[in-house]
Design a protein around this nucleic acid. Structure first.
Lengths: 250, 250
DNA sequence: CGTAAGTTTGACACGGATCAAGTTATGTGG
DNA sequence: CCACATAACTTGATCCGTGTCAAACTTACG
């Protein structure tokens, strides 16, 4: 996990002046390290493996997932360029990581990473902030899986992907979705059929238009946001809710 | 969140020697602080409020939850004695916290907390460890909500509660469940009716026996574990899974 | 006791899963 | 570059688990 919130990833790869002295940010830790490559479908590590490395995604996308008893797969997140994998771990990886596309990554040993962070009062807040963002994302996912129906789930997902690429600069409303329908289904707690049907429905509503198998054009961002059913726009739970009235929800 | 993993909470309240010098653990930070009380049903803070405090639960239980647009409530966790609330936050609370029972808590300002942690190389690993445990718990919840059916959810919940109280010492297999059925339902992504029916079913299977409204006796812990469908017992996802075979899952 | 909140139980409905074809991309070897 | 093979995706028919609605029951408490 550890999606980067607002980084223009790789942009600061140009000014490499200070990095050997003291990195200003987490990504700086990786600058000097060699690039490794992984082909689409290859595994970076497995759930339960000793967490020996921390990784920066330089290019491409990964899925992180758990497999439960009977073989069911739960994708807990997608990772893209600029993200860092493996911070929120103690000794073992909590999940497996697999390349969706061909990827380029940099690797730092957990020992070095921990040492660098421990020694740098500048880095610690960034680690903490990333952990908090990751936590917030996990909770959003809990809300999605607890209470949202198929349409809300798909719209939430598309909106999130849209916001991610908008941060990357271009204002174009075409999102790349490198992952398969099965990946999306396993991420949203649905089946591929339901994801597919929901996409078709959104298309008929003229909210999105498919643009090839792995990208999609957003026609009505507002419509997406509305159907996503996020609580972001309303006042949240700020208003007092008298305990004896709670049962009114049902 | 931030359930304590294995603390015998309150036990070390007896040796108060060092705490004003340098606390050995996070809970030590709270030792000197006055106890505050909150009656059952009262709110500790609301989602979106400035995160001004960090709290130790001294006695009693709380629920933490989010309310989404149309009033639906998602409980993201329960807190009990020894737990700490408010670590994984930046400036605003991500959720509301409400007392389930009458509770006793201690409060420290976020400023003091951050300062103490920043100054103590002893405390930082503990904060980090608690964040990681919290993250792992959130991911378990994602797995539960993604792919588990009602029976698996309820069994997972009961098993977790069982393990929690077993850590507290006594080997008795009666668990206290201070929360209501509605709380459990909102935590497991179900309705009260489904929770109730599932409990009845587990009773008929002679796995549990109700012992008053707010406690339950576990007859077959192994049966619970089996029905919970955790991946803990199998080899996890260690075995290589050839990419072209993945679709066999469906 | 009597009232209300919490819980259980039953009947029924419906959203999404499952099962089954059919269709469209993606690649691969001739 | 085309023909073919295969994986990925879409669409349709049906089923089932859980939600919804309603009512009875139990517990807590004034």
């Amino acid at each position: 996990m550890l999606q980067n919130a607002n980084f223009h990833h790789g942009k600061e790869a140009t000014n490499v002046a200070f990095i050997d002295r003291e990195p200003h940010c987490l990504l700086g830790l990786f600058k000097k390290l060699p690039i490794e490559r992984l082909a689409a479908g290859q595994s970076l590590f497995f759930e339960g493996d000793p967490a020996k490395g921390v990784f920066e995604v330089v290019e491409g996308s990964l899925r992180i997932f758990k497999i439960i008893s009977d073989g069911r797969r739960v994708i807990t997140g997608f990772l893209h360029a600029g993200d860092i994998i493996g911070v929120s771990l103690k000794d073992r990886y909590l999940y497996s990581a697999e390349a969706i596309t061909d990827i380029r990554i940099r690797r730092i040993s957990r020992k070095s990473f921990d040492a660098e962070v421990a020694n740098s009062p500048e880095l610690r807040p960034e680690v903490f902030a990333r952990l908090c963002d990751e936590m917030a994302a996990a909770q959003d996912q809990v809300v999605l899986l607890s209470r949202k129906n198929a349409e809300e789930r798909v719209c939430t997902f598309l909106l999130k992907e849209l916001l991610r690429v908008l941060c990357d600069g271009r204002g174009d409303l075409v999102i790349e979705l490198p992952m398969t329908r099965l990946d999306i289904a396993d991420y949203l707690g649905l089946t591929i059929e339901t994801v597919s049907r929901t996409m078709t429905k959104l298309n008929k509503k003229a909210i999105v238009v498919p643009a090839g198998r792995h990208s999609i054009r957003i026609l009505k961002r507002s419509g997406l946001a509305q159907l996503a059913g996020n609580d972001d726009e309303n006042g949240g739970s700020r208003m007092e809710m008298a305990p004896h009235l709670k049962s009114l929800r049902h």
